[in-house]
Design a protein around this nucleic acid. Structure first.
Lengths: 211, 211
DNA sequence: CTCCTCAACGAACGGTGTTAGGTTTCCCAA
DNA sequence: TTGGGAAACCTAACACCGTTCGTTGAGGAG
């Protein structure tokens, strides 16, 4: 019954994302995706122009959920903080796709639209245009860095090898649960320290800049 | 003359890195690498166990150049800053391999060894063990984030499309040269703000912590 | 001169993304 | 009622990928 299709763009995206979440980025192939949908690989190309395009759509879908509404009340510190948290949360929901995003996060439509909002909020709060651009970029650094280089993934395989070899490193982060908490706390520390450091540089700050 | 080999592990690595720098990470294939060395693909496997392994060796080679010597004199701010700059410089020299590094930067031998040194330096400077771990992690966020989400790569193709679409964003960063400078300045800003924010939290600081 | 080692080879396997062309099935118009 | 058309999926194939196998042939050792 070809006229009541079993394939749809959104269904393909959902299944593709599920496979990536389950099997990793390399675990997604067009044939496997098709099989999971009860179909042959070629049929997908009626709904998706290319695999790369599919991944970009997935990326856009994820970035669409990032909330940049925190700038509404004019408090740039609050806006920056909530935006960063929302961004990180969105990426953390699908960690396996982050390496793909990493190929060019700054150039994605959805990402740019959000950057523009952040930039506007910062300028309204008294930052210069160039400073605002740099602050928005810095926020990206933090968010993407945190999404990539987590302690939580991949440490477990040979814990014994790490023990004793790096005397200074905290041994505790070998446990997945502890590692996830450490990731979270590290991100919060980095974000708080960054925003505090920015506050020292804000045009309206009591003592400006200074090393 | 098979007994005077034309292949060597280090030569393979050098050519592979050159291809990645030139053609991108996806531009490297074993057949192309072999052809570039005047050889067939199968011959490579006498010197390299696997393509993935080759990439890991390349990654190690790059990370080996990161300088963590800044902690020698006991000034944690100087140590953190020089380490971050050195790290970023090492990654920026071969930007195309960064997405591969991003698959698990915290788990690489060379990376861990350096993290251990940073951690030791921080503890010696008065930070708690857990705080030191989080600061080291935060540093990774900044460095890898900066290496990935640069403004400089990829904006040029359709500058016209960006213009006028994002009214708040600075138009200047569309020019590659300006973009590179913006990347650099953004990283320096993020690093300085982060370190300043940390200083507020240091055990020996006049006014501890923040809101 | 013979033998033996070993680097590089040719061919192949199973997998990938993608395309061209063919087949089925339904809806709508005549 | 019947035929046309279009949509949805199919099979088959292409060019490429990473990797393995058994072979080839040149050089040094005896």
């Amino acid at each position: 019954m070809p006229r009541t299709p079993i394939l749809s763009a959104s269904g393909i995206r959902a299944t593709a994302l599920a496979i990536i979440d389950r099997d990793g980025l390399d675990g997604l192939s067009m044939r496997k995706l098709a099989a999971e949908l009860g179909v042959r690989a070629a049929s997908l190309y009626g709904h998706v122009t290319t695999k790369d395009d599919l991944l970009h759509e997935l990326a856009g879908e994820i970035l669409e959920r990032v909330d940049v509404g925190g700038f509404a009340d004019g408090d740039w510190r609050h806006g920056l903080t909530t935006c960063a948290r929302s961004y990180r949360a969105a990426l953390a929901e699908h960690p396996n796709i982050v390496p793909f995003l990493a190929y060019g996060p700054a150039h994605r439509e959805a990402s740019l639209r959000r950057l523009d909002v952040v930039h506007g909020g910062l300028v309204r709060a008294g930052w210069g245009r160039r400073e605002a651009t740099m602050i928005a970029a810095s926020l990206m650094y933090l968010v993407f860095g945190a999404a990539l280089s987590t302690f939580s993934s991949g440490f477990s395989p040979d814990q014994a090898a790490y023990r004793d070899r790096y005397p200074n490193l905290d041994k505790a982060h070998l446990l997945p649960a502890v590692a996830a908490e450490l990731d979270h706390d590290s991100f919060e520390l980095a974000l708080a320290a960054f925003v505090d450091g920015l506050a020292l540089r804000h045009p309206g700050s009591p003592r400006r800049a200074g090393p």
